[in-house]
Nucleic acid binder design. Structure first.
Lengths: 226, 226
DNA sequence: ATTTTGGGTGTAAAATTAACACTCATTTTT
DNA sequence: AAAAATGAGTGTTAATTTTACACCCAAAAT
């Protein structure tokens, strides 16, 4: 029975996390400055090896937790990356995940300790390995899922204004949206509920604060009607 | 430098292929009857281990070629499957791919030799491992891609009738389509060209045969306008 | 008191999608 | 030879969805 396996090679399996967050009204991802080989000195995605006692999904969640201190973060697999020479040191097959989180909730102590830094997606430094390809793919997958699933609320704070929500959709979709049409559409979703509260920080007049009620949406959220 | 890696475990990495083809007007996938452990006697997807000298993508293409004799087949990654106990024998991380091919072109000798058999997707036997999950996911990914990419022509013969094309879309989308609206839409694609020829096998009157010209489509094929 | 700033609102035209039924050409049956 | 059967082929209209577009509001700052 072991024969079936034994003639084949084993590889390191790693996970790489494309961690999205909102910073200063821009879409950012968390990068770390690598303090060790290979690719020492270069910026890279946060990654780690899959251990014996964890699934690949669990490994990704662990790497995220170790970096941000956060649990129960939305994550989604982007795909496996398996080029022979993708890691210059050893043969490593890596599975990429993207994560969406509220940037304010991440443990900034931990981030600093690990040399992690939020970086706007349109100002990325040169990255090692096949990380640029992973990020590209992650943005693609995220954009697609954003249309049919209520992902925006993973990135926004608990309470948000409609302008914040619209800006986020514009960032992810990389296209401007009409304010009135956007609000008309939002009004159709009973899961996006106005709280009585007003945000006074973003404007003089103040803007209504909304929150997302997942219990209400449940079955059919679809921002652009598909 | 090796320290960075050496404390981590290595795993077998495999590929599993969800091979779609049309048989008797139904969507089928190729299954093999396993003649060896683990899961001997059960039906399973065609898979294989990734070897040292090949990328994961290449391994999938090789497994497909070894089974069907075909090269240059459309393949697309479905994702990595990494549950700890997904393979009862050993820890194996598997990357699933779906493939689309013209069932008539596969080498039937090879298929027989390897115990492979076309099976309608709605009549699948009990499958081992996490293969049901892989198939589910593969169908999902395929359905999504079918809308925006000209995948139908990978499954159809070189020449096909519009009824064949519509039936295929109905199979993949799992919903009936209006004949007149369908043909109106098809008429807009200059890449779907009528040949002068007539198919007399499918009907008494005979139906025009079309073929797909990839050179014409190129940029924007999108069956349902997104 | 005036200016500035982002928040908030409705309607009409254009485009797309959905619904729908009959004739045609040929083969098979009687 | 006539009739029946079968899948191929064809346009129009209503309904829905999407897009385009401009002004007033409330509060703070000057």
């Amino acid at each position: 029975m072991t024969d079936y396996y034994s003639s084949h090679p084993r590889f390191f399996v790693s996970v790489d996390c494309i961690i999205f967050g909102l910073k200063d009204g821009k879409l950012n991802i968390l990068l770390t400055h690598r303090a060790f080989e290979p690719e020492m000195g270069k910026w890279s995605l946060m990654g780690g090896f899959v251990e014996r006692d964890e699934s690949v999904d669990d490994a990704a969640a662990r790497v995220l937790r170790q970096l941000t201190g956060l649990d129960n973060v939305y994550m989604h697999q982007v795909g496996a990356f398996g080029r022979i020479d993708r890691d210059p040191g050893e043969r490593v097959v890596s599975v990429a995940y993207f994560a969406l989180l509220n940037a304010n909730e991440a443990d900034s102590e931990l981030l600093r300790a690990r040399g992690a830094q939020w970086t706007p997606v349109d100002e990325l430094p040169e990255l090692g390995f096949d990380h640029p390809e992973m990020i590209e793919k992650a943005r693609e997958v995220m954009r697609r899922k954003f249309v049919t699933e209520p992902l925006a609320f993973e990135l926004l704070p608990e309470l948000f204004t409609l302008t914040q929500l619209q800006t986020l959709y514009e960032l992810v979709m990389a296209q401007p949206l009409d304010k009135r049409n956007f609000r008309k559409r939002i009004a159709e979703f009973s899961c996006i509920e106005p709280t009585g509260q007003i945000d006074k920080t973003g404007s003089r007049r103040g803007a209504r604060l909304y929150h997302y009620n997942p219990a209400v949406s449940a079955d059919t959220f679809s921002f652009f009607k598909i």
